[in-house]
């Protein structure tokens, strides 16, 4: 493996730093060759062994393989999955769940126009599925760059079907936030927080958003907006 070639090269250079000066002293030590031979032999044995041993103990020799594997897997997964899904949906187009999954995949690739199109298909096939409608609204909003108009109508429609729809709550809160309706944004987001599993990235992000909205609301109500965020706003200590 490449890494071990690197180890060999590094140890070789290190040995050169020690043995070349030793070699240069040869003439000064004429007749006492053993004074050169034994240190040299010792170093040639100990330095490589100790380097490998310490690295196996301290390092992560398996990491390269693992990282390579993850990368290959993720490449394979993503491309393969999308292509397989496209093929499957061509064969059996009446599959709202399938269109929904494909739409989300397109969004992940920033292919918003494609996402909007397939999600529209999904909503026509499942007109009462709040989750699909909310996702359609997001795709549309991403494409046009704003939640205003049709996306917002769709979000409201999704919430009418189910007030527990996470994506719809998030987007509704965002729309309100963008219009500076802090209290309304808080209403949606606080509701959303109750639904989300704790200690996840999503939960964390929404918590931050709620804090921001609370601060804005506090300022509007005449406060200073200061009690939040919790950490001191002006760290006085110099970190080193």
């Amino acid at each position: 493996m490449n890494l071990w070639i690197g180890v060999g090269a590094l140890v070789g250079v290190a040995l050169a730093f020690l043995l070349v000066p030793l070699w240069r002293q040869k003439s000064a030590l004429a007749g006492r060759q053993s004074e050169i031979r034994w240190p040299a032999v010792g170093l040639l044995g100990v330095l490589p062994a100790l380097t490998v041993g310490l690295y196996l103990y301290l390092g992560a020799p398996g990491i390269l393989k693992e990282l390579a594997l993850t990368q290959a897997q993720s490449n394979y997964d993503v491309d393969g999955m999308v292509r397989a899904l496209e093929d499957k949906l061509k064969a059996t187009p009446n599959d709202p769940e399938g269109w929904y999954a494909l739409g989300r995949a397109y969004i992940a690739f920033s292919r918003y126009a494609d996402a909007e199109e397939v999600l529209r298909k999904a909503t026509t096939q499942a007109p009462k599925d709040a989750r699909i409608i909310a996702q359609y609204a997001e795709a549309m909003a991403l494409k046009q760059g704003s939640l205003d108009g049709r996306p917002l109508e769709l979000i409201k429609a999704a919430l009418e079907i189910s007030y527990e729809e996470e994506k719809a709550l998030e987007l509704a809160g965002l729309a309100a936030f963008q219009k500076e309706n802090w209290a309304e944004a808080l209403h949606y987001w606080r509701r959303l927080l109750k639904l989300l599993p704790k200690a996840t990235e999503h939960h964390e992000a929404i918590t931050q958003a709620v804090k921001t909205a609370e601060r804005k609301l506090d300022i509007r109500l005449g406060g200073t907006g200061m009690p939040l965020p919790p950490q001191p706003a002006e760290p006085k200590k110099a970190p080193h």
Binding site: N2, L3, G6, V7, L10, V11, A14, F17, L18, L43, L47, L50, T51, L54, Y55, L58, G59, A60, P61, I63, L64
Partner: peptide
């Protein structure tokens, strides 16, 4: 790869320092 080599370089440096 590079971080691993850096790690190994420090391990070699440790031994050189002791020597």
């Amino acid at each position: 790869m590079i971080p691993e080599l850096g790690h190994i370089a420090l391990i070699v440096a440790l031994q050189l320092a002791l020597l």
